[in-house]
Amino acid sequence: MIVVTEKCVGCATCMLVCPSRAIKVEGKAEVIQEKCEKCKKCLNYCPVEAIKWVE
């Protein structure tokens, strides 16, 4: 599962690159789990390493 940690600054880079439009940003990023296809693109693109993968 993709989770957004406290480090998120809300820059929305993850939302811009998410191919399944599964991220919402209003101040901080939020993953819409039902839409998430777990491609981990957001995790790689996050400039502040705020997105983590948890089993």
Partner: peptide, 11 residues
């Protein structure tokens, strides 16, 4: 379309 905030590591 997008609201982006900029602070800390990405100010």
């Amino acid at each position: 379309l997008v609201i982006q905030s900029f602070s800390d590591g990405w100010p």
